[in-house]
Computed example of a mutant assay.
Amino acid sequence: AALPAADRARLLLRINPPGTPWHADDLALVARLAAARAIAGVVLPKAESADQLARLAEAAGPEAVLVPLIESAAGLAALDAIAAAPQVLRLAFGHLDFQADLGMACDAQEAELVPVRLALVLASRRADLAAPIDGIATDWRDTERLTAEAVRARRGGFGAKLCIHPAQVAAVHAALGPGAEELDWARRVVEAVAQAGGGVVNLDGRMVDAPVVRLAQRLLALDAQA
Rank of each mutant, 00 (worst) to 15 (best):
G198E: 05
V201M: 07
A194Q: 12
R206G: 09
V200D: 05
R214A: 15
R187Q: 13
V189A: 00
A210I: 13
A194R: 14
A216T: 07
Q217V: 10
R214D: 13
V208R: 00
A210S: 10
D209E: 15
V193F: 02
G205I: 13
R188A: 08
R206I: 09
V200S: 10
R188I: 10
V200I: 15
V189R: 00
R214F: 07
R206V: 12
R214Q: 14
A194C: 08
G198D: 08
E191P: 02
L203C: 09
A210G: 04
A186F: 07
R188D: 10
M207Y: 05
R187I: 06
M207T: 14
A216M: 05
V212S: 03
Q217F: 04
L215E: 14
V212W: 00
V190M: 02
A186N: 11
V189C: 01
A216N: 06
V193S: 01
R206F: 09
V212A: 12
V190K: 02
D204Q: 14
D209A: 06
V189F: 02
A192P: 02
Q217E: 15
Q217H: 07
V201L: 08
Q195A: 15
V190E: 03
A194N: 07
A196V: 09
D204I: 12
V213D: 00
V190A: 06
M207A: 10
M207N: 05
G205A: 11
M207G: 09
R188T: 06
V208T: 03
V200T: 14
A196N: 10
V193T: 01
V200P: 00
A216W: 01
L203P: 01
A196F: 07
P211T: 15
G198I: 09
V212H: 07
V189E: 00
D204E: 15
V200K: 03
R214S: 14
R187T: 11
A194M: 05
G199C: 06
M207P: 02
A186W: 02
A194H: 09
R188L: 10
R214K: 14
G197E: 13
P211H: 11
Q195T: 15
P211L: 12
V190L: 03
L203W: 08
M207E: 06
V189N: 03
N202L: 12
N202F: 10
D204S: 11
R206Q: 14
V208H: 01
P211C: 13
R214L: 12
G197R: 11
V213F: 02
G198R: 03
V212N: 07
V189K: 00
A210W: 11
R187D: 04
G205P: 09
A216F: 01
V208Q: 05
L215D: 12
Q217S: 12
Q195R: 15
L203M: 09
L215Y: 10
R214V: 14
L203H: 05
V201W: 03
V189L: 04
V189T: 04
G205D: 11
P211Q: 12
P211K: 11
V193R: 00
R206M: 12
G205H: 13
E191F: 05
M207Q: 08
V208M: 04
V208A: 01
V213H: 02
V190P: 01
Q195P: 04
A210T: 13
A194L: 05
Q195W: 09
N202E: 14
